[in-house]
Design a protein around this nucleic acid. Structure first.
Lengths: 193, 193
DNA sequence: GTTTTTATTGATTGACCAGTCAATAAAAAA
DNA sequence: TTTTTTATTGACTGGTCAATCAATAAAAAC
């Protein structure tokens, strides 16, 4: 029953299935077969559309990163003051769409992928640079020369909270995580107010 | 040429080789054969002494964690004031023995291992608890009720700096990393002085 | 000096899996 | 209506690898 125009639908389903499969297994050791099955198709079709496993992984990464980027941008548009901008970035980083067990596990495994796949490393490096840049831009009016230092620290803190959370299977408490990081920012900012 | 009493020597060699192999490949997808070869023996012998791949990984984890623990304890013994204790913990966390590309990569992969192997998760959870406990103990006299919060944040910051460093192939600059975290601690402590 | 224990490996087995291909069929184009 | 394009999969292939085993030999125990 071949309906035409399936490609984008199949690709999206595979990307979604990949994130869930990596999250569920907690490792990149997932078979194309398992991903394809989860996406409701044969592994041959997955290969047909993506060429290979690595491309599937990279597409899943791009999707996750794009989702995160969108989340941040939306939050930033609703912010008016520098402090609100900083808060928006942190809150978006722990929004429900990202801070879920399977996405956290996937994120962790992307860092592993980046050890061997140059494109994966490139994507994560861009993500880190953008996060820092966003934070610096938000913090500069408030902290002047110290903005860079605090931005870097905040970025590391966010990543560290994710890493910590990857060990805790239970329901990820995004609000708690966001509060933790925000408390640090408040501490940095309170002297400038 | 069987010499008796080889077991501890072989085990140690395999543990060392495992860390280097994981670090070099940047993944847990290393074969027992490759590890054994690096350690100068057949893969059959590796299986003979450890039983299986998973046990080899766990032994490598325990070794890495023990090494880190020793480093911290040594540094702590040389510290006299609470502030010195906090500083000692942070500096030990970025000591040359831990903060090297292959060890950082191994550490990252241990977090992945913890997603599937309960014993690995247990080991990392213990590590995190001990790190926090050490920091709380050092900070309590200085920060009283805020000690727990700052300790957690510092622990997350350390892990985040490691994660960040795993992306940067270049020579890990341990001193810079330590300074980053120490600058945060100084900031927290300066008001109490 | 015979037996048992320890050390060691080459060869083998059984499973798994990425990637390929030929075959089928529906839709679209010519 | 014939041809081409798009969708789809079952079956196959080649390779990899963890784990096992039988065989060899030196040391230690008896």
């Amino acid at each position: 029953m071949p309906k035409v125009g399936m490609e984008p639908i199949r690709r999206a389903a595979l990307v979604e299935a990949t994130i869930h499969e990596i999250g569920a297994q907690g490792t990149l050791d997932v078979t194309v077969g398992a991903i394809a099955k989860r996406a409701g198709m044969s592994s041959a079709l997955a290969h047909h559309y993506f060429g290979g496993k690595e491309q599937i992984f990279l597409a899943a990464m791009r999707h996750t990163l794009r989702l995160y980027g969108t989340e941040v941008n939306t939050a930033l548009r609703a912010a008016n003051t520098p402090a609100q901008r900083a808060e928006a970035i942190v809150k978006a980083s722990f929004a429900n769409s990202n801070f879920r067990p399977e996405v956290i596990a996937a994120w962790l495994n992307f860092y592993v992928l980046a050890q061997t796949v140059p494109d994966a490393k490139r994507l994560l490096t861009i993500y880190q640079a953008r996060l820092r840049s966003n934070l610096v831009h938000a913090l500069r009016p408030l902290l002047r020369a110290r903005a860079d230092e605090v931005a870097s620290r905040t970025a590391a803190l966010i990543d560290g909270v994710y890493l910590h959370q990857s060990l805790v299977k239970s329901k990820a408490q995004h609000s708690q995580a966001a509060e933790d990081v925000l408390a640090y920012l408040d501490f940095e900012l309170k002297e400038t107010m």
